[in-house]
Design a binder for these strands. Structure first.
Length: 286
DNA sequence: CCTAGAACCTGCGAGC
DNA sequence: TGCTCGCAGGTTCTAG
């Protein structure tokens, strides 16, 4: 699911329903779901068994469950279609159930990783000194992190010979932004997705970051964005932010600012939605 | 070193 | 009805 607000909704659900519970047994139903765990599925389940889950953390679109009394965490990425669900034991297995974690308590619920497209997955990793799984040390802080460095982000933009939407999706520059919130923030900032980053002024960067934060906080307040049953919280409930989208998915509909029909342009094997009047294409397109 | 584009998967809806 | 095509919220590898 996707982008930061949706992942944070999931993290909060895990904090409430899974934190401080001891793992009785894990079961891998599809090996691809643990492909980032290099030692394999058997090693994954063996090392999980018997350990208590700590308080879940998140950076960008990654979230992880620390294993108490170890220096390791279960790292989760939801990819395009992953879900982490807390379900009663008696709930029938989902069609795309990939991993099941049972707990050593009487609460009657289990953790399930369900993922249609199998781009996501779980894996176990050592933590760095910061308590971060070592394999995501290269992921930048996200814009809702109090320690996110606006000035460093601005300087990184100026160094890039790329365009702004690519930069927003570059998780080593700023994490948590995906295709929806990139389009939303760019629409709010009246910036075309192909504007070169090298010419960004500090005020322009500051304004854009403000819009990124605003749109993410707004989405978080209503439980994230979900168009269908694929994107749900740990209780299987959908978010409502799709009703508030200003750009994403609005091809042909009037721009909410100026009324001009919104456009969809193919971009990087996906789509960019924008207003051709409010978000003028840069003069020199490389 | 850097950037752009394809590849990885499964399923759904549109169009023929 | 059934086929093919395009498309989907992300990351990572390869080619240039």
């Amino acid at each position: 699911m996707p982008e930061l607000p949706e992942v944070e909704v999931v993290r909060r659900g895990l904090e409430r329903w899974v934190a401080h519970r001891a793992v009785a047994e894990a079961e891998v139903l599809h090996p691809r779901a643990v492909r980032r765990h290099i030692a394999g599925a058997d090693d994954f389940t063996h090392r999980l068994k018997g350990h208590r889950i700590g308080v879940p953390s998140r950076r960008g679109k990654y979230l992880w469950l620390p294993l108490e009394d170890t220096n390791q965490s279960v790292l989760a990425h939801l990819g395009m279609s992953g879900q982490l669900l807390v379900q009663p034991h008696e709930t029938p297995d989902e069609k795309h159930l990939r991993i099941r974690v049972r707990f050593a308590d009487g609460l009657g619920t289990e953790l399930r990783f369900v993922d249609q497209r199998t781009f996501g997955g779980l894996s176990l990793h050592d933590n760095t000194e910061d308590g971060l799984p070592d394999v995501i040390a290269h992921i930048a802080r996200d814009p809702l992190d109090p320690l996110f460095d606006d000035e460093a982000f601005h300087q990184a933009l100026r160094r890039k010979r790329s365009t702004i939407k690519r930069a927003l999706l570059d998780q080593s520059l700023i994490s948590g932004v995906g295709n929806i919130y990139a389009d939303e923030a760019l629409w709010r900032a009246r910036l075309h997705y192909e504007r070169p980053t090298a010419g960004f002024t500090r005020p322009r960067t500051t304004e854009l970051l403000g819009h990124v934060r605003d749109v993410m906080n707004a989405a978080l307040a209503v439980g994230g964005t979900s168009f269908d049953s694929l994107y749900v919280n740990v209780n299987g409930e959908s978010g409502y932010f799709d009703r508030s989208l200003d750009a994403y998915g609005r091809e042909g509909l009037p721009c909410k600012r100026c009324g001009t029909p919104m456009r969809r342009a193919p971009w990087m094997n996906r789509s960019s939605y924008f207003c051709p009047k409010c978000q003028r294409a840069p003069r020199v397109s490389s």
